[in-house]
Write a protein that binds this DNA or RNA. Structure first.
Lengths: 203, 203
DNA sequence: GTCTATAACAAGATAGAC
DNA sequence: GTCTATCTTGTTATAGAC
Protein backbone atom coordinates (compact mmCIF):
# COMPACT_ATOMS: atom_id res chain seq x y z
CA UNK A 1 0.00 0.00 0.00
CA UNK A 2 1.88 3.05 -1.25
CA UNK A 3 -0.83 5.52 -0.26
CA UNK A 4 -0.26 6.90 3.21
CA UNK A 5 -2.87 7.79 5.77
CA UNK A 6 -4.13 11.26 4.82
CA UNK A 7 -3.01 14.07 7.07
CA UNK A 8 -4.35 17.30 5.66
CA UNK A 9 -7.93 18.51 5.83
CA UNK A 10 -8.31 18.68 2.06
CA UNK A 11 -7.11 15.12 1.65
CA UNK A 12 -9.60 13.91 4.18
CA UNK A 13 -12.39 15.78 2.45
CA UNK A 14 -11.54 14.45 -1.00
CA UNK A 15 -11.28 10.91 0.28
CA UNK A 16 -14.74 11.34 1.76
CA UNK A 17 -16.06 12.58 -1.58
CA UNK A 18 -14.66 9.52 -3.32
CA UNK A 19 -16.13 7.16 -0.74
CA UNK A 20 -19.55 8.79 -1.01
CA UNK A 21 -19.48 8.43 -4.79
CA UNK A 22 -18.17 4.89 -4.59
CA UNK A 23 -20.92 3.90 -2.18
CA UNK A 24 -23.48 5.12 -4.67
CA UNK A 25 -21.95 3.25 -7.59
CA UNK A 26 -20.89 0.04 -5.84
CA UNK A 27 -24.28 -0.36 -4.17
CA UNK A 28 -26.06 -0.04 -7.51
CA UNK A 29 -23.76 -2.13 -9.68
CA UNK A 30 -21.69 -4.38 -7.43
CA UNK A 31 -17.91 -4.46 -7.31
CA UNK A 32 -17.26 -5.65 -10.83
CA UNK A 33 -20.16 -3.72 -12.31
CA UNK A 34 -18.83 -0.45 -10.95
CA UNK A 35 -16.21 1.35 -13.02
CA UNK A 36 -13.70 3.95 -11.91
CA UNK A 37 -15.13 6.19 -14.63
CA UNK A 38 -18.56 6.07 -13.03
CA UNK A 39 -17.16 6.71 -9.56
CA UNK A 40 -15.00 9.57 -10.81
CA UNK A 41 -17.97 11.12 -12.60
CA UNK A 42 -20.13 10.81 -9.51
CA UNK A 43 -17.39 12.37 -7.38
CA UNK A 44 -16.63 15.14 -9.86
CA UNK A 45 -12.98 14.12 -10.09
CA UNK A 46 -10.82 12.73 -12.83
CA UNK A 47 -10.04 9.06 -12.85
CA UNK A 48 -6.31 9.46 -12.17
CA UNK A 49 -7.14 11.82 -9.35
CA UNK A 50 -9.23 9.08 -7.78
CA UNK A 51 -6.15 6.89 -7.77
CA UNK A 52 -4.16 9.63 -6.15
CA UNK A 53 -6.34 9.22 -3.07
CA UNK A 54 -6.76 5.46 -3.17
CA UNK A 55 -4.30 2.82 -4.26
CA UNK A 56 -6.80 0.88 -6.34
CA UNK A 57 -10.45 0.16 -6.98
CA UNK A 58 -10.27 -2.66 -4.47
CA UNK A 59 -8.77 -0.30 -1.90
CA UNK A 60 -11.83 1.93 -2.19
CA UNK A 61 -14.16 -1.01 -1.82
CA UNK A 62 -12.40 -2.45 1.20
CA UNK A 63 -12.23 0.95 2.90
CA UNK A 64 -15.95 1.30 2.39
CA UNK A 65 -16.76 -2.13 3.82
CA UNK A 66 -14.49 -1.74 6.82
CA UNK A 67 -16.04 1.54 7.80
CA UNK A 68 -19.44 -0.02 7.38
CA UNK A 69 -19.36 -3.18 9.48
CA UNK A 70 -18.92 -1.40 12.78
CA UNK A 71 -21.73 1.03 12.20
CA UNK A 72 -23.88 -1.81 11.03
CA UNK A 73 -23.65 -3.60 14.33
CA UNK A 74 -24.14 -0.54 16.52
CA UNK A 75 -27.89 -1.12 16.95
CA UNK A 76 -27.21 -4.59 18.34
CA UNK A 77 -24.43 -3.35 20.63
CA UNK A 78 -26.82 -0.85 22.16
CA UNK A 79 -29.12 -3.59 23.43
CA UNK A 80 -28.78 -3.53 27.23
CA UNK A 81 -29.16 -6.61 29.40
CA UNK A 82 -30.39 -4.36 32.21
CA UNK A 83 -33.36 -2.94 30.31
CA UNK A 84 -36.84 -4.37 29.91
CA UNK A 85 -36.37 -7.40 27.63
CA UNK A 86 -39.30 -6.89 25.29
CA UNK A 87 -38.73 -3.13 25.09
CA UNK A 88 -35.03 -3.64 24.38
CA UNK A 89 -35.73 -6.04 21.53
CA UNK A 90 -38.46 -3.89 20.00
CA UNK A 91 -36.16 -0.88 20.22
CA UNK A 92 -33.47 -2.89 18.45
CA UNK A 93 -35.91 -3.71 15.67
CA UNK A 94 -36.83 -0.03 15.30
CA UNK A 95 -33.18 1.06 15.20
CA UNK A 96 -32.37 -1.57 12.60
CA UNK A 97 -35.35 -0.62 10.46
CA UNK A 98 -34.31 3.00 10.75
CA UNK A 99 -30.96 2.07 9.25
CA UNK A 100 -32.73 0.56 6.25
CA UNK A 101 -34.42 3.91 5.78
CA UNK A 102 -31.36 6.09 6.41
CA UNK A 103 -28.63 3.94 4.87
CA UNK A 104 -30.12 1.75 2.13
CA UNK A 105 -26.99 1.97 -0.01
CA UNK A 106 -24.85 0.68 2.82
CA UNK A 107 -27.30 -2.18 3.32
CA UNK A 108 -27.19 -3.13 -0.34
CA UNK A 109 -23.40 -2.91 -0.46
CA UNK A 110 -23.19 -5.25 2.50
CA UNK A 111 -25.84 -7.59 1.10
CA UNK A 112 -23.95 -8.01 -2.16
CA UNK A 113 -20.75 -8.78 -0.32
CA UNK A 114 -22.46 -11.49 1.73
CA UNK A 115 -24.46 -12.97 -1.14
CA UNK A 116 -21.24 -13.44 -3.07
CA UNK A 117 -19.71 -15.35 -0.19
CA UNK A 118 -18.05 -12.43 1.62
CA UNK A 119 -14.84 -12.66 -0.46
CA UNK A 120 -13.46 -9.43 1.03
CA UNK A 121 -14.63 -9.47 4.66
CA UNK A 122 -15.08 -13.17 5.24
CA UNK A 123 -12.58 -13.41 8.08
CA UNK A 124 -14.27 -10.91 10.36
CA UNK A 125 -17.58 -12.75 10.23
CA UNK A 126 -16.54 -15.81 12.20
CA UNK A 127 -14.61 -13.81 14.79
CA UNK A 128 -15.89 -10.30 15.62
CA UNK A 129 -19.44 -10.79 14.37
CA UNK A 130 -19.86 -14.22 15.92
CA UNK A 131 -18.52 -13.00 19.25
CA UNK A 132 -20.97 -10.11 19.44
CA UNK A 133 -23.94 -12.20 18.36
CA UNK A 134 -23.09 -15.00 20.77
CA UNK A 135 -22.87 -12.52 23.61
CA UNK A 136 -26.24 -10.94 22.81
CA UNK A 137 -27.81 -14.34 22.21
CA UNK A 138 -26.73 -15.20 25.72
CA UNK A 139 -28.51 -12.15 27.07
CA UNK A 140 -31.66 -13.08 25.18
CA UNK A 141 -31.45 -16.68 26.40
CA UNK A 142 -31.26 -15.42 29.99
CA UNK A 143 -34.36 -13.31 29.41
CA UNK A 144 -36.17 -16.38 28.11
CA UNK A 145 -35.00 -18.54 30.99
CA UNK A 146 -36.33 -15.92 33.40
CA UNK A 147 -39.69 -16.00 31.64
CA UNK A 148 -39.48 -12.35 30.60
CA UNK A 149 -40.08 -13.19 26.93
CA UNK A 150 -41.45 -16.27 25.21
CA UNK A 151 -38.87 -18.95 24.41
CA UNK A 152 -37.41 -19.40 20.93
CA UNK A 153 -33.91 -19.74 19.46
CA UNK A 154 -31.96 -16.54 20.26
CA UNK A 155 -29.62 -16.79 17.27
CA UNK A 156 -32.48 -17.25 14.84
CA UNK A 157 -34.36 -14.46 16.57
CA UNK A 158 -31.48 -12.14 15.74
CA UNK A 159 -31.38 -13.47 12.17
CA UNK A 160 -35.08 -12.74 11.87
CA UNK A 161 -34.54 -9.13 12.92
CA UNK A 162 -31.77 -8.74 10.37
CA UNK A 163 -33.68 -10.28 7.50
CA UNK A 164 -37.01 -8.57 8.17
CA UNK A 165 -35.51 -5.10 8.47
CA UNK A 166 -32.82 -5.30 5.80
CA UNK A 167 -35.37 -6.65 3.34
CA UNK A 168 -36.87 -3.18 3.03
CA UNK A 169 -33.53 -1.74 1.89
CA UNK A 170 -32.15 -4.63 -0.13
CA UNK A 171 -35.36 -5.60 -1.94
CA UNK A 172 -36.71 -2.07 -2.11
CA UNK A 173 -37.43 -2.30 -5.84
CA UNK A 174 -39.50 -5.43 -5.41
CA UNK A 175 -41.35 -4.13 -2.36
CA UNK A 176 -42.30 -0.93 -4.16
CA UNK A 177 -43.32 -2.78 -7.30
CA UNK A 178 -45.68 -4.99 -5.30
CA UNK A 179 -47.12 -2.28 -3.07
CA UNK A 180 -47.59 0.17 -5.94
CA UNK A 181 -47.31 3.95 -5.93
CA UNK A 182 -48.05 6.19 -3.00
CA UNK A 183 -47.22 3.87 -0.16
CA UNK A 184 -44.29 4.23 2.23
CA UNK A 185 -42.97 0.69 2.72
CA UNK A 186 -40.83 1.37 5.77
CA UNK A 187 -43.51 3.43 7.43
CA UNK A 188 -45.89 0.49 7.10
CA UNK A 189 -43.19 -1.97 8.12
CA UNK A 190 -42.76 -0.22 11.43
CA UNK A 191 -46.27 -1.14 12.51
CA UNK A 192 -46.14 -4.60 11.03
CA UNK A 193 -42.85 -5.52 12.66
CA UNK A 194 -43.97 -4.19 16.02
CA UNK A 195 -47.01 -6.45 15.79
CA UNK A 196 -44.93 -9.41 14.65
CA UNK A 197 -42.31 -9.18 17.38
CA UNK A 198 -44.80 -8.35 20.08
CA UNK A 199 -46.71 -11.56 19.31
CA UNK A 200 -43.48 -13.54 19.01
CA UNK A 201 -41.99 -12.30 22.26
CA UNK A 202 -44.93 -11.90 24.62
CA UNK A 203 -44.79 -14.84 27.05
CA UNK B 1 -31.64 -12.77 -31.68
CA UNK B 2 -29.91 -14.86 -34.35
CA UNK B 3 -29.92 -18.05 -32.34
CA UNK B 4 -33.01 -20.14 -33.04
CA UNK B 5 -34.98 -22.19 -30.56
CA UNK B 6 -33.10 -25.48 -30.24
CA UNK B 7 -34.74 -28.45 -31.90
CA UNK B 8 -32.45 -31.43 -31.44
CA UNK B 9 -31.92 -33.38 -28.27
CA UNK B 10 -28.19 -32.67 -28.16
CA UNK B 11 -28.76 -28.96 -28.50
CA UNK B 12 -31.21 -29.02 -25.65
CA UNK B 13 -28.77 -30.94 -23.53
CA UNK B 14 -25.87 -28.61 -24.19
CA UNK B 15 -27.97 -25.56 -23.52
CA UNK B 16 -28.90 -27.11 -20.20
CA UNK B 17 -25.23 -27.71 -19.42
CA UNK B 18 -24.44 -24.07 -20.12
CA UNK B 19 -27.33 -22.85 -17.99
CA UNK B 20 -26.29 -25.06 -15.10
CA UNK B 21 -22.73 -23.74 -15.28
CA UNK B 22 -23.91 -20.17 -15.68
CA UNK B 23 -26.16 -20.48 -12.63
CA UNK B 24 -23.17 -21.58 -10.60
CA UNK B 25 -20.96 -18.72 -11.79
CA UNK B 26 -23.54 -15.92 -11.93
CA UNK B 27 -24.85 -16.73 -8.45
CA UNK B 28 -21.33 -16.59 -7.02
CA UNK B 29 -20.02 -13.53 -8.83
CA UNK B 30 -22.98 -11.56 -10.16
CA UNK B 31 -23.58 -10.68 -13.79
CA UNK B 32 -20.58 -8.45 -14.32
CA UNK B 33 -18.32 -10.50 -12.08
CA UNK B 34 -18.97 -13.65 -14.07
CA UNK B 35 -16.84 -14.24 -17.15
CA UNK B 36 -17.59 -16.38 -20.17
CA UNK B 37 -14.28 -18.10 -19.51
CA UNK B 38 -15.46 -19.15 -16.07
CA UNK B 39 -18.80 -20.35 -17.37
CA UNK B 40 -17.16 -22.22 -20.23
CA UNK B 41 -14.73 -23.87 -17.84
CA UNK B 42 -17.52 -24.89 -15.49
CA UNK B 43 -19.53 -26.29 -18.40
CA UNK B 44 -16.58 -28.09 -19.94
CA UNK B 45 -17.01 -26.27 -23.22
CA UNK B 46 -14.96 -23.75 -25.13
CA UNK B 47 -15.92 -20.11 -25.02
CA UNK B 48 -16.90 -19.88 -28.69
CA UNK B 49 -18.96 -23.02 -28.29
CA UNK B 50 -20.88 -21.30 -25.53
CA UNK B 51 -21.75 -18.57 -27.97
CA UNK B 52 -22.91 -21.11 -30.47
CA UNK B 53 -25.73 -22.00 -28.10
CA UNK B 54 -26.47 -18.52 -26.78
CA UNK B 55 -26.30 -15.22 -28.58
CA UNK B 56 -24.47 -13.42 -25.80
CA UNK B 57 -23.62 -13.38 -22.13
CA UNK B 58 -26.74 -11.35 -21.47
CA UNK B 59 -28.82 -13.90 -23.37
CA UNK B 60 -27.66 -16.60 -20.96
CA UNK B 61 -28.45 -14.45 -17.96
CA UNK B 62 -31.90 -13.47 -19.16
CA UNK B 63 -32.75 -17.07 -20.04
CA UNK B 64 -31.76 -18.10 -16.55
CA UNK B 65 -33.86 -15.42 -14.87
CA UNK B 66 -36.92 -16.03 -17.00
CA UNK B 67 -36.92 -19.72 -16.24
CA UNK B 68 -36.51 -18.87 -12.58
CA UNK B 69 -39.24 -16.37 -11.78
CA UNK B 70 -42.08 -18.76 -12.48
CA UNK B 71 -40.67 -21.55 -10.37
CA UNK B 72 -39.91 -19.05 -7.65
CA UNK B 73 -43.55 -18.11 -7.25
CA UNK B 74 -44.94 -21.63 -7.40
CA UNK B 75 -45.05 -22.04 -3.60
CA UNK B 76 -47.24 -18.95 -3.33
CA UNK B 77 -49.51 -20.05 -6.20
CA UNK B 78 -50.16 -23.33 -4.42
CA UNK B 79 -51.73 -21.55 -1.46
CA UNK B 80 -55.44 -22.45 -1.60
CA UNK B 81 -58.19 -20.15 -0.37
CA UNK B 82 -60.28 -23.23 0.44
CA UNK B 83 -57.79 -24.77 2.85
CA UNK B 84 -57.33 -24.12 6.55
CA UNK B 85 -55.84 -20.60 6.71
CA UNK B 86 -53.14 -21.17 9.27
CA UNK B 87 -52.17 -24.53 7.82
CA UNK B 88 -52.00 -23.06 4.31
CA UNK B 89 -49.71 -20.25 5.42
CA UNK B 90 -47.45 -22.51 7.46
CA UNK B 91 -47.24 -24.91 4.52
CA UNK B 92 -46.27 -21.98 2.31
CA UNK B 93 -43.48 -21.07 4.72
CA UNK B 94 -42.22 -24.66 4.67
CA UNK B 95 -42.26 -24.85 0.87
CA UNK B 96 -40.42 -21.56 0.59
CA UNK B 97 -37.80 -22.60 3.13
CA UNK B 98 -37.39 -25.85 1.26
CA UNK B 99 -36.52 -23.86 -1.84
CA UNK B 100 -33.75 -22.10 0.07
CA UNK B 101 -32.37 -25.52 0.86
CA UNK B 102 -32.81 -27.04 -2.59
CA UNK B 103 -32.11 -24.02 -4.80
CA UNK B 104 -29.79 -21.62 -2.97
CA UNK B 105 -28.02 -20.58 -6.16
CA UNK B 106 -31.29 -19.58 -7.78
CA UNK B 107 -32.15 -17.57 -4.68
CA UNK B 108 -28.83 -15.75 -4.76
CA UNK B 109 -29.10 -15.07 -8.49
CA UNK B 110 -32.52 -13.56 -7.95
CA UNK B 111 -31.39 -11.59 -4.90
CA UNK B 112 -28.54 -9.98 -6.80
CA UNK B 113 -30.84 -8.98 -9.62
CA UNK B 114 -33.23 -7.31 -7.18
CA UNK B 115 -30.56 -5.66 -5.05
CA UNK B 116 -29.15 -4.02 -8.15
CA UNK B 117 -32.55 -2.58 -9.00
CA UNK B 118 -33.84 -5.41 -11.23
CA UNK B 119 -32.24 -3.96 -14.39
CA UNK B 120 -33.13 -7.04 -16.42
CA UNK B 121 -36.50 -8.17 -15.08
CA UNK B 122 -37.86 -4.91 -13.71
CA UNK B 123 -40.93 -4.84 -15.95
CA UNK B 124 -42.37 -8.15 -14.77
CA UNK B 125 -42.29 -7.12 -11.12
CA UNK B 126 -45.00 -4.47 -11.29
CA UNK B 127 -47.27 -6.59 -13.49
CA UNK B 128 -47.15 -10.37 -13.05
CA UNK B 129 -45.66 -10.40 -9.57
CA UNK B 130 -47.86 -7.62 -8.24
CA UNK B 131 -50.97 -9.29 -9.66
CA UNK B 132 -50.23 -12.61 -7.97
CA UNK B 133 -49.32 -11.04 -4.64
CA UNK B 134 -52.37 -8.77 -4.66
CA UNK B 135 -54.58 -11.77 -5.32
CA UNK B 136 -53.10 -13.81 -2.49
CA UNK B 137 -53.10 -10.81 -0.18
CA UNK B 138 -56.83 -10.61 -0.83
CA UNK B 139 -57.24 -14.21 0.23
CA UNK B 140 -55.26 -13.58 3.40
CA UNK B 141 -57.28 -10.44 4.15
CA UNK B 142 -60.48 -12.45 3.84
CA UNK B 143 -59.11 -15.00 6.30
CA UNK B 144 -58.33 -12.18 8.72
CA UNK B 145 -61.75 -10.59 8.28
CA UNK B 146 -63.34 -13.93 9.05
CA UNK B 147 -61.28 -14.19 12.23
CA UNK B 148 -59.50 -17.34 11.08
CA UNK B 149 -56.07 -15.78 11.65
CA UNK B 150 -54.92 -12.76 13.65
CA UNK B 151 -55.03 -9.46 11.77
CA UNK B 152 -51.92 -7.86 10.27
CA UNK B 153 -50.95 -6.41 6.90
CA UNK B 154 -51.23 -9.20 4.26
CA UNK B 155 -48.63 -7.71 1.91
CA UNK B 156 -46.08 -7.31 4.65
CA UNK B 157 -46.93 -10.78 5.88
CA UNK B 158 -45.93 -12.13 2.48
CA UNK B 159 -42.77 -10.00 2.51
CA UNK B 160 -41.90 -11.43 5.89
CA UNK B 161 -42.18 -14.97 4.56
CA UNK B 162 -39.93 -14.10 1.64
CA UNK B 163 -37.29 -12.37 3.71
CA UNK B 164 -37.18 -14.90 6.54
CA UNK B 165 -36.87 -17.91 4.27
CA UNK B 166 -34.62 -16.47 1.55
CA UNK B 167 -32.26 -15.16 4.21
CA UNK B 168 -31.01 -18.70 4.81
CA UNK B 169 -29.97 -19.03 1.17
CA UNK B 170 -28.81 -15.48 0.41
CA UNK B 171 -26.91 -14.86 3.66
CA UNK B 172 -25.80 -18.45 4.10
CA UNK B 173 -22.17 -17.47 4.65
CA UNK B 174 -23.06 -15.10 7.44
CA UNK B 175 -25.51 -17.49 9.09
CA UNK B 176 -22.95 -20.28 9.11
CA UNK B 177 -20.19 -17.99 10.39
CA UNK B 178 -22.37 -16.93 13.32
CA UNK B 179 -23.75 -20.36 14.18
CA UNK B 180 -20.38 -22.07 13.87
CA UNK B 181 -19.59 -25.56 12.66
CA UNK B 182 -21.81 -28.56 13.03
CA UNK B 183 -25.20 -26.88 12.94
CA UNK B 184 -27.76 -27.16 10.14
CA UNK B 185 -29.17 -23.63 9.76
CA UNK B 186 -32.20 -24.54 7.69
CA UNK B 187 -33.05 -27.48 9.88
CA UNK B 188 -33.13 -25.16 12.88
CA UNK B 189 -34.97 -22.48 10.92
CA UNK B 190 -37.82 -24.87 10.27
CA UNK B 191 -38.69 -25.04 13.94
CA UNK B 192 -38.05 -21.38 14.60
CA UNK B 193 -40.20 -20.18 11.70
CA UNK B 194 -43.04 -22.50 12.65
CA UNK B 195 -43.00 -20.98 16.13
CA UNK B 196 -42.77 -17.45 14.77
CA UNK B 197 -45.64 -17.75 12.33
CA UNK B 198 -47.82 -19.74 14.69
CA UNK B 199 -47.58 -16.96 17.27
CA UNK B 200 -48.09 -14.29 14.62
CA UNK B 201 -51.13 -15.92 13.04
CA UNK B 202 -53.00 -17.53 15.91
CA UNK B 203 -56.04 -15.32 16.64
C1' DG C 1 -2.65 17.99 -6.54
C1' DT C 2 -4.72 17.65 -10.90
C1' DC C 3 -4.82 16.87 -15.55
C1' DT C 4 -4.16 14.56 -20.63
C1' DA C 5 -2.41 10.79 -22.80
C1' DT C 6 -1.42 6.15 -22.89
C1' DA C 7 0.20 1.67 -21.53
C1' DA C 8 -1.31 -2.96 -20.19
C1' DC C 9 -4.60 -6.16 -19.76
C1' DA C 10 -9.03 -8.58 -19.40
C1' DA C 11 -13.15 -10.04 -21.56
C1' DG C 12 -17.03 -10.36 -25.06
C1' DA C 13 -17.54 -11.68 -29.46
C1' DT C 14 -16.25 -13.35 -34.29
C1' DA C 15 -13.58 -15.67 -38.33
C1' DG C 16 -12.59 -19.51 -40.36
C1' DA C 17 -10.39 -24.17 -40.39
C1' DC C 18 -11.71 -28.78 -39.39
C1' DG D 1 -20.74 -28.59 -33.91
C1' DT D 2 -16.39 -27.60 -32.10
C1' DC D 3 -12.05 -25.71 -31.99
C1' DT D 4 -7.74 -22.18 -32.30
C1' DA D 5 -6.64 -17.78 -33.25
C1' DT D 6 -7.87 -13.11 -33.34
C1' DC D 7 -10.41 -8.77 -33.38
C1' DT D 8 -12.32 -5.12 -30.59
C1' DT D 9 -13.73 -2.81 -26.80
C1' DG D 10 -13.80 -1.41 -22.17
C1' DT D 11 -11.29 -0.81 -17.94
C1' DT D 12 -7.62 -0.48 -14.48
C1' DA D 13 -3.67 1.76 -13.69
C1' DT D 14 0.51 4.66 -14.70
C1' DA D 15 3.60 8.33 -16.93
C1' DG D 16 4.66 12.72 -17.09
C1' DA D 17 3.43 17.68 -18.06
C1' DC D 18 1.61 21.54 -15.56
Amino acid sequence: MTHPIPRTRIQEKNRARVLEAALEVFSRAGFRGATLDAIAGEAGLSKPNLLYYFASKEDIHVTLLEGLVDRWLDPLREMRAEGDPQAELLAYVRRKLQMSRDFPRESRLFAQEIVQGAPRIGAGLSTDLKALVDEKAGVIQAWMDAGKIAPSDPHHLIFSIWSLTQHYADFDVQVRAVLGEGRDPIDEAEGFLETLFTRLLTP
